[in-house]
Design a protein around this nucleic acid. Structure first.
Length: 906
RNA sequence: GGGCGAUUAGCUCAGUUGGUUUAGAGCACCUGCCUUACAAGCAGGGGGUCGUUGGUUCGAAUCCAUCAUCGCCCACCA
């Protein structure tokens, strides 16, 4: 069968993915093997694959495939997150386009629409992961809002309430006027934006001509003012404290109070106090017993309390009130100003501080335990310095209670029922009713008498249970006992607080209760042992790749262009843990669009092609069964086998430290340089000549091992080549093959062959500089020294050099060879005899350069050795090495000088 | 304001607890090759006083300090 000169990913990728699925290789059930489990960071159910997902999931797939090859019971649980705000916003938008509003159709109908939407778009991102090659256990696919996971959420809520960790209270919260829900502190993203500082004059009541000027960014909120505050010790205003100021335009009188929250130097030194619309003002209000006047509607418009501009949007009102204030002569100054504005992470709407009644989880104790878990090393972060960020968040003085209620419908509804002033928290309405009957002594109560809380829970309140709930751990611990703790969590550092910290908290809180002390003593209570934080994927201007910026290439188009393996290679080759990765997709300067191209992915694609052609070579050989294995082939096989072991050992170390891009690069070099460029060239038979059976058999074995080792990184091409190499039995697939071992290897052999390779490279270089064609056979002599004699005792080494450098002969010599170029391989000198008369001047120049280098080097070595304190203080080994360097350099210098003498260099 | 990280070749990055030659890789670049697996390739090559200035040490890209530039996190902000 003739193979194309190019590897074709489109043909093979679907074929093998279907094959793996058909064989059910990705499915895991508990058994006697060691488990290796990963839970996916669940993407938003209606999301699409972006570069961050590609990176993240490639890494998880590498880890899980490696574990599978090592014979572990690998289980990667996929799934999606219901993403409360994001999904609800999408559904609301979809309905709006149909002319329907949420309020009109009511909760139940809305949820029907939402589930319909979810069913329609929910699977897309998971299908896209399959294109990438993700070897998830698809039979275990979970969804954070499916019945079982929702039950777990309610159980946990009730449990925390019972333990006193959950409370409901009136607090200043972050309100998203667009989504019309409260947000947790973590969902508010602050950034500096341009704004204005309005200096507004308030007249003093009953004091003709007296006034006080305040500065504010939000003039539209003056109608909600209930005081003006100045510093106690501010002499400018001391005489006004206790008097009343009149709010411009509406002329409501408010007290002037003294509070040291006010800073002397900022603004005018007088602060308008608006307790309903600012956290700090609220605090001041509490201290001084001020009234709270809320002038905003939930969607961010002015309400009746404002008296003027009622019904205007807050930003429209700001523009209009500026004009009104100016006309009335109250606007003293307008100062441009840069300040930090908080926006909703999901809707990007400017967040409004608002006093609302919400449910909270007390965080003090949970945070302390979560901090301890990482501090003590029970959970390890990669890279380690991510702990600093984690710590700054969780330390006592920074941690704040977690607001978990959301004024949305898409999510788990809060399991709290109200009856007059009573609250009953229970997993079901029936239980709540029972509690109500008991509490009130009224047996005639029915479910209809109770009102369930209208709010749903924060999405993260379900995803923090993910490592336990995906194994149905809250219902039945059989699977949890086997798979928990999971091994590695792979996620971006941007959700360290949203998700990672909270999973650690929930693991601490419930794993003991669920699994029992014995299990916890043995395995720990944390949901994972290692956390691998990936960096953010950025464009070549270092901006975060995002949909809104339009600077991200289309992930699926990249896969079409380079193949999944090519893209995986590209993603990974620049991805050290925790470092942001700069993805090299170029911009089209004309269309201003990012191109679906990438040099790194191209390198990956080329690598596939390289291996493919190695396959074509090996497959194309004609075998002569009578042929004996040559000495060169014996040496080559023995060398590459040792080289594989050496590299696998390094790769293993890379994996332990999660240095996956190094691991890939080591394999890349092993396959491209050592295997293709050297090994295959060493054993390659002459044109149209056959090869022996044993060499081919060994080569196929080694090639197969290389495919197994590379499989976690590039699963499709390795599976395809693995099958092309040999006829495989049913069920014999690369995906479940055996990872090559890295037992002892012969370092001395590797070193000797390396020295021979240097000699070969020297001959090639001489050909290059002298313009000698590869076809032209050369005579080479090697200076007869004990070291050279020892080197050439290695069977096959001499013939290998002859073959690789294309020589006519390679002999020992005890004299300088006339009309030759002298090269050094290690300390050994080789003479390449030339047919043309050599250009002595050129040669002398080259040798002089060499000599200068060696002498400079020797000088630096001698400087060290001449330092008595070095010789006496440095470890013996280090000194010995320096002496060896000295001896080598001296030998080389001697050789070079002899050669120069021979040439008659001046 | 508090903290973290980065600064090494034209570009993107390694450099493993301070010492295996006077710093590596990939891409890009230069030279020569359509050599019968691969031009998406082969064989070679050039290129860095490791951001600055000091210090510790027999020895520093590596440890400490200082400054500079960049990125990020947290807090505050009338």
């Amino acid at each position: 069968m003739a193979l194309s000169t190019r590897y074709n990913p489109q043909e093979t990728e679907k074929k093998w993915y279907d094959h793996w699925m058909e064989k059910d290789y990705f499915h895991s059930e508990p058994d006697e093997r060691e488990p290796y489990s990963i839970v996916i960071p669940p993407p938003n159910v209606t999301g699409v694959l972006h570069m961050g997902h590609m990176l993240n999931n490639t890494i998880q797939d590498i880890l899980i495939r490696k574990a599978r090859l090592e014979g572990k019971n690998a289980c990667w649980v996929p799934g999606t997150d219901h993403a409360s705000i994001a999904t609800e916003a999408k559904v609301v938008k979809m309905l709006r386009e149909k002319g329907i509003t949420k309020g009109e159709i009511g909760r139940e109908k809305f949820l029907e629409h939402a589930f319909e939407w979810k069913d329609k778009y929910g699977g897309i991102i998971l299908d896209q992961l399959k294109k990438l090659g993700a070897s998830c256990d698809w039979k275990r696919t979970r969804f954070t809002m499916e019945p079982k996971l929702s039950e777990a959420v309610l159980k946990v809520f009730v449990d925390l309430y019972r333990k006193g960790h959950i409370y409901r209270g009136l607090r200043m919260t972050n309100w998203d006027p667009e989504a019309q829900t409260v947000l947790s502190n973590e969902e508010v993203i602050y950034a500096d934006e341009n704004s204005n500082l309005y200096h507004i004059r308030y007249d003093i009541e009953g004091e003709e001509g007296e006034s006080i000027v305040i500065a504010t960014q939000r003039p539209e909120t003056i109608m909600a003012d209930t005081a003006i505050a100045v510093r106690e010790d501010d002499e400018r205003y001391a005489h006004l404290v206790g008097k009343k100021a009149l709010i411009p335009l509406i002329n409501r009188a408010i007290p002037i109070i003294a509070d040291n929250y006010v800073e002397l130097g900022f603004g005018t030194g007088a602060l308008k106090v608006t307790p309903a619309h600012d956290q700090n003002d609220y605090d001041i209000g509490q201290r001084h017993n001020l009234e709270v006047i809320d002038i905003l509607t939930p969607d961010g418009k002015l309400n009746e309390n404002a008296q003027i501009l009622v019904g205007e949007d807050r930003f429209e009102a700001r523009i209009k009130i500026k004009v009104l204030l100016k006309e009335a002569g109250h606007l003293v100054e307008l100062e441009s100003y840069r300040t930090s504005i908080g926006r909703s992470e999901r809707t990007k709407a400017v967040v409004e501080p608002r006093l609302t009644k919400q449910w909270f989880v007390k965080m003090n104790e949970l945070a302390r335990m979560a901090l301890h878990a990482v501090e003590s090393g029970e959970v390890k972060f990669h890279p380690e310095h991510m702990f600093n960020m984690y710590k700054s968040w969780l330390k006592e003085e920074n941690v704040r209670d977690w607001c978990i209620s959301r004024q949305l419908w898409w999510g788990q509804r809060i399991p709290a029922w109200y009856l007059d002033e009573h609250v009953f928290v229970a997993e079901t309405a029936e239980e709540a009713l029972a509690k109500a009957k008991k509490a009130t002594g009224n047996d005639a109560l029915t479910i209809e008498d109770l009102n369930q809380d209208e709010d749903v829970l924060d999405t993260w309140f379900s995803s923090w249970l993910w490592p336990m709930s995906v194994f149905d751990g809250f219902e039945n611990q059989e699977e949890l006992r086997y798979y928990y703790p999971t091994n590695t969590l792979v996620t971006g550092w941007d959700i360290m607080f949203f998700w990672v910290a909270r999973m650690i908290m929930s693991g601490y809180e419930w794993s003991g209760e669920l699994l029992g002390m014995e299990h916890v003593m043995e395995h720990g209570r944390m949901p994972f042992r290692d956390v691998y934080f990936t960096g953010m994927v950025r464009d070549n201007q270092r901006r975060k790749m995002s949909k809104s910026l339009g600077n991200s290439p289309d992930a699926l188009k990249l896969i079409e262009n380079y193949g999944a393996d090519g893209v995986r290679f590209g993603m990974l080759s620049s991805a050290a843990a925790g470092n942001d990765i700069v993805f090299d997709a170029p911009f089209d300067n004309e269309t201003k669009e990012v191109l679906n191209e990438s040099k790194l992915c191209e390198q990956g694609r080329n690598f596939c092609n390289k291996m493919w052609n190695a396959l074509r070579l090996v497959r194309g050989w004609e075998i002569d069964p009578k042929l004996e294995m040559s000495a060169v082939n014996k040496l080559a096989i023995s060398w590459i086998e040792n080289k594989v072991k050496e590299t696998i050992e390094r790769v293993e170390a890379n994996f332990v430290e999660y240095r996956l891009s190094d691991a890939l690069m080591n394999l890349y070099k092993l396959i491209w340089d050592d295997f293709c460029s050297w090994y295959l060239e060493m054993i390659k038979p002459e044109y149209e000549k056959p090869i022996d059976q044993a060499t081919v058999d060994r080569t196929l074995e080694i090639f197969s091992d290389l495919m197994s080792a590379l499989h976690p990184f590039m699963p499709f091409v390795t599976e395809e080549i693995w099958h092309q190499l040999k006829d495989r039995k049913e069920g014999e697939d690369c995906v479940i093959s055996t990872y090559p071992a890295s037992n002892d290897y012969d370092k001395a052999l590797i070193k000797k062959v390396d020295q021979a390779k240097t000699a070969v490279a020297g001959v090639r270089d001489t050909r290059n500089t002298k313009g000698i064609k590869m076809k032209e056979l050369l005579k080479v002599f090697i200076q007869d020294t004990p070291v050279a004699q020892e080197l050439f005792k290695l069977d096959g080494l001499k013939s290998m050099i002859i073959k690789m450098a294309n020589l006519e002969s390679l002999e020992f010599t005890s004299e300088e060879v006339p009309n030759s170029v002298a090269i050094l391989a290690g300390t050994e000198k080789f003479f390449i005899e030339l047919k043309e008369t050599i250009n002595a001047e050129e040669e002398c120049a080259r040798l002089t350069k060499d000599l200068e280098y060696q002498e400079g080097f020797l000088k630096s070595v001698m400087k060290k050795l001449g330092n008595e304190r070095f010789v006496s203080n440095a470890p013996e080994q280090v000194v010995a090495m320096e002496r060896k360097k000295q001896a080598d350099a001296e030998a080389k210098i001697k050789s070079i000088k002899e050669a120069m003498e021979q040439l008659g260099c001046s």
